[in-house]
Simulated assay, not measured.
Amino acid sequence: MGEPGSGPQRIPLRTVDVARASGYSVQQVRDLERLGVLPPAARSDNGYRSYTPLHVHALRAYRGLAGAVGPVVARQLLAQLRTGTTAEAASAVNAVHVRLAREREEALRAQRALRATRAEAHTTEFERESDAMTITELAGALGVRPSTLRFWEQEGLVMPERVTSLRARRYGLPAIGAARIVVALRGAGYGIPAVREILGSLHRLDGVGEAQRILRQRLEGIATRSVALLRAGADLAAVVESAPEPTAT
């Protein structure tokens, strides 16, 4: 079956045609156009909207992007893909893949930190000191700001192993592991009180089991979002290829 409106005469698509081809309702098509997901449709003399196959691609791409990064970010990204150059649009899509890959890696690191929770009790002082991180190093490794780590410290989530006379923080292995777990839990949507409760229960077997369950769900969710992004691949490519080329200077 060919693309809607891709025949020899490239007949303009009606709103109902776009809705059928994209899986959205007629009202949703109009709403998404109003929100900037779609480029404005051409209007005939009698006021009817006239769409093209690119509008269908944009809607399908939006569905995948919304499943991968949420509707708000998806709307912003679609607008960026339409107005940026091809190179800029391709880079923006690649950034979504990188974001998901990083989230997955952080969840896996949190799992490893969770498994090491009990073993860390037997870690020697020398090993803890040699593997310690400054606040800047830990923030960079986690992809958060140092101010975020200071906030977590205030909330009793991640405590530095020691603070020097110059107020420089040093994070040992237990704190680094806790920080990775906090990043994964916060990424999964857990609020500060829930994260604090989960961290406080890790010394209990049932607490470890609950944290493991949450992290497994986190990884499954990231996998689902990654598949949604892959399904949108061809439609995203069509939108990217429609981006304007840079003008010669």
Results as ranks from 00 to 15, higher is better:
Glu3Gly: 09
Pro4Ser: 10
Pro4Gln: 12
Pro4Asn: 13
Ser6Glu: 03
Arg10Lys: 06
Leu13Gln: 02
Asp17Tyr: 14
Ala19Met: 07
Ala21Glu: 02
Gly23Pro: 09
Tyr24Phe: 10
Val26Gly: 01
Gln27Arg: 10
Asp31Gly: 00
Leu32Phe: 11
Glu33Pro: 00
Arg34Leu: 11
Leu38Asn: 01
Ala42Cys: 07
Tyr48Asn: 11
Thr52Gly: 06
Pro53His: 06
Leu54Val: 09
His55Leu: 08
Val56Trp: 02
Leu59Ile: 03
Arg60His: 12
Ala61Gln: 02
Gly64Phe: 01
Leu65Met: 10
Leu65Phe: 09
Pro71His: 05
Val72Ile: 09
Gln76Arg: 08
Gln76Ser: 07
Gln80Tyr: 04
Arg82Thr: 00
Thr85Ala: 01
Glu88Ile: 08
Val93Cys: 12
Ala101Gln: 12
Glu106Ser: 07
Glu106Gly: 04
Leu108Asp: 01
Leu108Asn: 02
Ala113Gly: 13
Thr117Gln: 01
Thr117Met: 00
Thr117Val: 03
Arg118Asn: 06
Ala121Arg: 12
Ala121Ile: 08
His122Gln: 12
Thr123Tyr: 05
Ala132Thr: 01
Met133Glu: 03
Thr134Arg: 15
Arg145Phe: 08
Thr148Asn: 14
Glu153Gln: 15
Glu153Met: 06
Glu155Gly: 06
Pro160Asn: 09
Glu161Asp: 15
Arg162Leu: 10
Thr164Cys: 06
Ala168Glu: 13
Ala168Trp: 10
Arg170Thr: 08
Tyr171Leu: 15
Tyr171Lys: 15
Ile176Phe: 06
Arg180Leu: 08
Arg180Ile: 00
Arg180His: 12
Ile181Leu: 12
Val183Glu: 06
Gly187Pro: 05
Gly187Thr: 13
Ala188Met: 08
Gly189Ala: 07
Pro193Thr: 04
Ile198Gln: 02
Asp206Tyr: 11
Gly209Lys: 11
Gly209Leu: 13
Arg213Gln: 13
Arg213His: 14
Arg218Leu: 10
Gly221Lys: 08
Gly221Val: 01
Ile222Gly: 12
Ser226Cys: 07
Ala228Met: 14
Leu229Pro: 05
Arg231His: 15
Ala234Gln: 14
Ala234Asn: 15
Asp235Lys: 13
Val239Leu: 08
Val239Glu: 00
Val240Lys: 03
Glu241Gln: 13
Ser242Gln: 15
Pro246Cys: 08
Pro246Ile: 09
Ala248Leu: 15
